[in-house]
Structure formats: C-alpha cells, structure tokens
Design a protein around this nucleic acid. Sequence first.
DNA 1: TCCATTGACGTTTTT
DNA 2: CGTCAATGGA
Length: 728
Amino acid sequence: MDVSHLLDELNEAQREAVTADSDHLLVLAGAGSGKTRVLIHRLAWLIQVEHASPLSVLAVTFTNKAAGEMRERAGKLLQVSTRPLWIGTFHGIAHRLLRMHWKEAGLPEEFQILDSEDQQRLLRRIIRDEGMDEAHWPARQAQWFINARKDEGERPQHIDHLDHPATATWVQVYRRYEEYCKRGGLVDFAELLLRAHELWLESPPLLDHYRKRLRHLLVDEFQDTNAIQYAWVRMLAGDTGRVFVVGDDDQSIYGWRGARVENVQHFVRDFPDVRTVRLEQNYRSTGNILQAANALIAHNEARMGKELWTAGPKGAPIRLYAAFNEQDEARFVVDQLRQWLDHGRRADDAAVLYRTTAQSRLFEEYLLRANIPYRVYGGQRFFERTEVKDALAYLRLLHNPNDDAALERVINKPTRAIGEKTVSQLREQARESGLTLWQAAGACVAQGTFATRAGTAVSAFIRLVEGMRDRMQDWALGNQMQGVIDESRLVDHYEKEPRERMETRIENLRELVNAADAFILPQEDADAGLTELQSFLSHAALEAGETQGESWDDCVQLMTMHSAKGLEFPLVFIAGMEDGLFPHQRSLEEASGRLEEERRLCYVGMTRAREQLYLSYAEIRRMHGSENFCRPSRFIDEMPAGLVEEIRPRMATSRPYRSAQPARQRTSSNLTDSSWPFKLGQVVLHPKFGEGTVMAFEGSGEHTRVHVNFRDAGAKWLVLAYANLQAR
DNA sequence: TCCATTGACGTTTTT
DNA sequence: CGTCAATGGA
C-alpha cells in the first residue's frame, strides 16, 4: 500500500512516532513541533497500514475544540467517514459510556449533568441547610474540595480525616452532596470521570468487552491528565491495549486543577517497553525566540529534557519594554499594534497575553481609543448565560422534575409568590423525608402544609410544569424550547432590568430557540440511547459554546497565557512581566513546584510567537487601589541577555527598587527621530501642568504630539507645537 | 420584593 | 481601584 501521503510531510522523528511498531509510545512533543499532526497521522497509520478497525480506535483530548479539530483533520486524511471512530474529550466519552450503561453505573436513565455553577449553588444550599457559617465554610472551597477528591478517585469513605476537623467537615458536606445528587439524578463533571472509572471497576464483563474492542488508545495533551484520567486509561488498556500518548511536560500549566505532570514519567514506568520519541524541531518560531524559551525552561529541574530548534532564521530579537506604569505599558503595546497594522499586517495575527484576566481592561481601553478592533478570550459562554440557563432549567424540569438544581433556579422566576419562606419550607420537608424538592412540593400541597396563598402558588407551579410536560411531550425540540419560554413567562422576569440588558437577554433566548431548532441528534448519542432532549441538554452542559456569538474577523486577540496554549500568532506581547504578577505572588509563596509551573506558563507564552515577541513590565503598577513598585520578572533574567533588546532608554530619574541586574544591550533604534526635540523619559516643564516625564511621541512636523506623564496632573497628550514645553 | 449601598476580596479554566 | 455578592431599608 502506498503510504507516502502519511509520511511525506513528516520529519524523521515524526515518522518514527507515526510508524513505530512498539505497543506503547510516549511522544514528547515540544511547542510547535507538529504534535497534532503526528497524532492524526498515527491514527491514519493504524487504520490504513496496520488495518486496525476504525471501531477499535479511541482518541481522547481535553477540549471540545481539540476533539473537533482532530476529527476534522482525521477525516481529511482518511478520506472516509470518521463516525465509527471514538474521538472526544475525556468527559464526553465518559458521558457516553454512562449513558449506554446507566444501569450498571447505578444512575437513573434520565440523569442530568450539573455544571460548575449549578454545583456551587447546590453546595451553598447544603452548607446553609446544615446550619454552617458560610463565611467560614464557603461553597467555593467545598466545590474545590469535592472536585479535588473526585479527581483523585476518592469517595467520602476513602478519605482519612480523623485528625483534621476541617477535613471532617468537608467530608460531611461531600456526603450530603452525594445524597442530593443521587436523589436528583445529577452528575457533575468530575463525577462523570469517576463513575466511568468505577463502572469498569465494578463490571468486569463490561471492561473486558471494551478492552477487546478498543485496542488502540491515543491521548492528546497527556501532561494535563489527572489521577482519575490516568487510572481510566490504564484500566482500559489492561494488558492488551496499545497506548499512544502525546504531551509536553514543559507545557504542563494545570497542576493547580489536578493535572499531574508525573503521569508522563509514570507512563514509562507503568507500561511495558514504552518507546519514547522526542519532537524537537519547531516549525513555528524564530531561532531567537526558541533559544530564549529553551534557556528559560532550562531553569526547571524535574524535566524529561528537550531542546527546541528550528531550521528557519534567527529573526528579530525579543524586545523588552520597561514601562513607567501600567498605562504606559498599554499605550506602548497599542502603539506597536498600530504600527503593525500600518504596515499592512492583520490584526488577528497579533495577540496580547497576560497572567491575570483583570489585566485585559486597560488594553481594551487603549485599543478602543485607538480604534483597533479586538477580541477578549474567556468570559461567559453562551450556555452559561443566566437567561439561557434559566430557560434550560425549565426544559430540564420537563425531562426530570426531580432536578433540584433546576427547580430551585426557576421556581420563582418570574416571581409567582413563592418566596424565600415557602422555598425553605419545601427544603425543610425535603430534607426531613429524604425527598427531592419536587416530591416535597407535591407532599406539602397534599398535606396542606402551606398557608393558603403559598399553597395555591406552589400547586400552580406544579400544574405549570406538569401541563407543559404533558402537552409538549411530542413536540419538536425547538418548539419545546419556545413553548417553555413562553409558558413560563420567563421574559417577565427580565422586564425590570435596564432596557439594553433585557434586549440582549431576549436576543439570547431567541438564539437558544434557534439552537434547539437546528439541533440534530448526533448518531453517537442516538446509539447511546439518548433522546433529542437529553442529548441537547448534555451538549449544553458539556460544550458551553463559543465565548461569544459574534463573528471575530480580524481582531487583535487578548487573552491569558493559559488560554493561549495551543495557539500561535506572528506577533505576541507578554505584558506584566513583573515579580509578584508573573510569576504570581501566590505561586511564590506556595510550596515548591508552583514556581516551576509559572515558568512553564512563561514558556508557553513565549512559544506562541512566530515572528516577533515583545515583553513588557511596569515599574509602577496600580493594584488593588495602591501604587506598587515592581521588580522586573525573574524570568526576564533567565533569558540570555544577548537575545533581549531593551527598546526604551532608561529614564533620567532613578528607578526605585530596581535590583542589580546584568547590564542589557540597549538601543533606541526605532524610537529616536531627529524631529523630536525631547528624548523619551526626559523630564519637562509645562506652564500649567508642571513637571512631567515624556513617554511617547506621535506623528511628525507640525502635527507631532507628545505624551507627557505629569507628576500632579497625570498623563496627557499634547500637540508639541502649542505645548510650550521646557527641558529641565 | 426590589434597588441601593456597603463590604470583602483580589491567579490561572475546561469539562 | 473595580467587581461581585450580600444586606438592609423603602
């Protein structure tokens, strides 16, 4: 068979990985080394050359985006339908297994997925019900505790907590939470994985079946797997499965949410005869960028070891801008972006990366002012919006009225005279008799527990839900969605909000109906026995949708370095390179390992850049309302000085708190212009505003404008010709 | 029941 | 400083 299409475009290491005949393979794939390509070509190799059945292949990723991309690229390469292939996220595949084997997994057929917001609400509820002080026992922390335990594969009974009163309390909450979930048929994200693992643990025939069927396992981003995911893969592989994992220990940035880099080392230890292939040739960045990134990451100790190289040019040096403050930093970045655009380059080829989400604000402000289109990654997703979740909650009630999370969300939305008092009576009743809220509502009405008014209101609500359910049973999904929105009179609830807010909400509800209308039951969900409604609800939870619905043509990309993983841009800015911000203070204070993860994050950020990388830091940053003097990030010092060019002359005034550092090469190349009478950083005197520092120039000749940061009057743009500035 | 003021808090995020 | 959630008065 002609296999040239699978191998032609690959380098030697990639080829070795794709064609390896060993059972288990670890591919250590550096940033930009063609990791996804290798995974997909391997998949195609298994099917086309080794004649593995498509039904015997399972490929797992972490995000829906990666899974979708993999399926698409596999389809192109294979030129056949990818339908029989199991390609999906860990959660998606676990979900599918649980749907198919709900009985064996001990779940009700109509179980629902609890997203993290629902989970937190439910936990807050439980903590209150237990009479605990929410200030001491925040729901957020309970959520963290429970998810972390589940990620480790632990149920309450597995947790040793006798010595720790706090742990004992959280275990108690964990227990109560499990009861609630069981009664309502609710499954949170971590539970999907844990249950899927337990399913095999407890049903050997089932495990055996899947072991025989899924002989070929491929795992992407292996360094991000947590304990339960690793255990799951190991169990499925057994002694017969062949496991091909791709990852990069240097890009492990999710330790804080349970990911275990050690799994990469454990893989070599736990599986027999693992062949390790390193992909070190980089096809993305310039030599300078790679060299600096290599030097940086070399400061980490526990590494598998890898050094990126490129056959391409060295490229421009990395540029470092020492901003006066965070305003100056934003101004600088936006100025550079302006120049980039003026040179005819695309806006969406440029990205501004930062450590914390809060940093986006200033960049947005300056970009807005400069009229440069931008997109901020992250933030609320479509299926996470309040109005969307409200409408879905009604739909969930039709499907399963025992869904306490859904009921509690909408029982008084819009207000129908079921206030806090009535609801807490319901909860009380439910707790005493071990019922769901829906069952308790029925019981209370029957027993006449409520005052007449509340009783009427509650039974009206019951009739509303039952009525909708009976009538809409056979409707098409889109009609059900619309029907639920109409009959619940949900829109009434938003009418009191500001007009603009209300309009977006209504618009989103319309979009939700469209989404329901357009929804087609995927074959694999049908195979797993899901109804259209079940499938739609699961999709809403498992794939919360794009961050925003609008189109994103040609915008500058703003995002955290975490969200940037996997992406690449010709022009990259990493802002806020200051000790305390990046690496973050919290990781400096915390136990060992955290700093190394921050360094990996920096490595990830740097290796996003194809052509040009800018780093910047502010000498003074306003944070939490007060001014902080900042020390440049230690990561800057860890890059070879010769590769980093400081592009701003040092200011005339002394820099506070600037630690002694090796002198760096300094030039002022593109920032000097003979038409500028002042130097950047020079202190000048204005007749009205007083003393200030020159921060930037713009334009030339008569139109030259100068940006001066005045000591008392703040930063201002002035037309040089009229400003009447004096040098000091 | 609703809005407005007050107060606490302040990494990173997918499923 | 800015955000979000909780509280309390009307």
